[in-house]
Computed example of a mutant assay.
Amino acid sequence: MARDKDPIDPKGLIREAFRIDGISAPECRSIFVDWALSVKADDHAPLIQTLLSRHEDVPDAHPMKQVLQEGLAAKPANVRRGGRAARFTES
């Protein structure tokens, strides 16, 4: 029987990360990046919040939970400015 795809975790990466015993923080970061690239969203924060809510019963010390919290707190990089705005800084 085929499982319906979860639009928030289509590959099941986050779900599986929480199931892996002894998973490390670097492994969780790698999984998080793969997840973020696989989900089409302009703003991942609401999706991350939903994932944290789904796994609220997991201890806070779990590395995947910590990575999700870091992802929620991370500020997106500045957008590249082109043309004249890129050549002149604001005073």
Rank of each mutant, 00 (worst) to 15 (best):
residue 85 A to H: 04
residue 27 E to V: 10
residue 21 D to C: 01
residue 65 K to H: 12
residue 21 D to R: 10
residue 43 D to T: 06
residue 27 E to F: 04
residue 82 G to R: 01
residue 44 H to T: 00
residue 72 L to H: 06
residue 84 R to I: 10
residue 37 L to R: 15
residue 40 K to L: 03
residue 67 V to D: 09
residue 32 F to P: 05
residue 43 D to F: 02
residue 63 P to A: 13
residue 81 R to F: 00
residue 26 P to D: 13
residue 31 I to T: 12
residue 44 H to I: 07
residue 26 P to T: 12
residue 37 L to N: 12
residue 49 Q to I: 04
residue 60 D to F: 11
residue 29 R to F: 03
residue 52 L to K: 04
residue 60 D to E: 15
residue 59 P to G: 14
residue 21 D to K: 11
residue 54 R to S: 01
residue 21 D to L: 05
residue 85 A to V: 02
residue 62 H to G: 08
residue 84 R to M: 10
residue 58 V to I: 15
residue 80 R to S: 05
residue 36 A to N: 05
residue 76 P to C: 03
residue 65 K to C: 06
residue 55 H to A: 01
residue 32 F to E: 12
residue 23 I to N: 11
residue 37 L to V: 05
residue 76 P to R: 09
residue 82 G to P: 04
residue 32 F to R: 09
residue 24 S to H: 13
residue 42 D to Q: 13
residue 46 P to F: 07
residue 60 D to Y: 13
residue 31 I to M: 08
residue 61 A to W: 14
residue 55 H to L: 00
residue 33 V to G: 08
residue 25 A to T: 14
residue 80 R to F: 02
residue 65 K to P: 09
residue 38 S to F: 06
residue 33 V to D: 11
residue 59 P to W: 14
residue 29 R to P: 08
residue 52 L to C: 01
residue 30 S to R: 15
residue 42 D to H: 14
residue 69 Q to M: 11
residue 40 K to Q: 00
residue 75 K to R: 02
residue 51 L to A: 04
residue 30 S to W: 11
residue 62 H to S: 10
residue 60 D to N: 14
residue 70 E to M: 15
residue 32 F to S: 08
residue 79 V to M: 01
residue 61 A to S: 15
residue 62 H to V: 15
residue 28 C to A: 10
residue 32 F to C: 09
residue 34 D to V: 02
residue 75 K to I: 01
residue 71 G to H: 11
residue 76 P to H: 09
residue 70 E to H: 13
residue 65 K to V: 03
residue 39 V to H: 02
residue 41 A to I: 01
residue 26 P to H: 11
residue 21 D to T: 07
residue 50 T to K: 02
residue 53 S to N: 03
residue 43 D to C: 07
residue 29 R to L: 03
residue 28 C to D: 12
residue 45 A to V: 10
residue 63 P to N: 09
residue 79 V to H: 01
residue 48 I to F: 00
residue 59 P to R: 14
residue 85 A to E: 07
residue 62 H to L: 13
residue 41 A to Q: 07
residue 73 A to I: 02
residue 83 G to R: 10
residue 62 H to F: 14
residue 75 K to S: 00
residue 74 A to P: 08
residue 31 I to S: 06
residue 40 K to M: 00
residue 80 R to W: 04
residue 56 E to I: 02
residue 49 Q to T: 09
residue 68 L to N: 10
residue 78 N to L: 01
residue 30 S to E: 15
residue 36 A to C: 05
residue 56 E to R: 06
residue 72 L to F: 09
residue 30 S to I: 07
residue 84 R to Y: 11
residue 83 G to S: 04
